[in-house]
């Protein structure tokens, strides 16, 4: 859990949210760009989860491990759930549907970082 990973994750999540909103404004459905961004976002989150998992299994200790793991699991689920849900929406609002979880992930990774740094990790 480092800023080196949190910053790119935030950037990709913000791009995904913007792309989603843009497609709604342009009255378009979501396309390949959204799927690629969501995939990159999910990949970054998986890397983060693996890094955090390895360090937690090692000597890293957090004051609120349960909260941290809860947020981590939630963040991992959101892009996947967002894409699945947005793909069932056939109107231009699909992009906004995808933008909601993307924005949530952007916020959650910073909360995760906060929880991680509270442990001095």
């Amino acid at each position: 859990m480092t800023t080196a990973l949190v910053v790119p994750t935030t950037v990709v999540a913000a791009l995904l949210a913007l792309a989603g909103l843009a497609s709604t404004v342009a009255r378009r459905r979501i396309g390949l760009l959204h799927l690629v961004l969501a995939a990159v976002l999910e990949a970054l989150l998986v890397v983060q989860a693996v890094v955090a998992g390895v360090r937690l299994a090692g000597d890293a200790a957090l004051p609120e491990t349960a909260t941290f793991l809860g947020y981590l699991a939630g963040a991992l689920l959101l892009p996947v759930a967002g894409v699945l849900f947005a793909r069932t929406e056939t109107s231009r609002w699909a992009g906004t549907v995808l933008a909601v979880p993307a924005a949530a992930v952007a916020v959650m990774v910073w909360r995760l970082l906060q929880l991680w740094e509270a442990g001095g990790g």
Partner: peptide, 8 residues
């Protein structure tokens, strides 16, 4: 970037 949604 995205396929256009059909009108209405």
């Amino acid at each position: 970037m995205a396929e256009p949604a059909g009108p209405r």
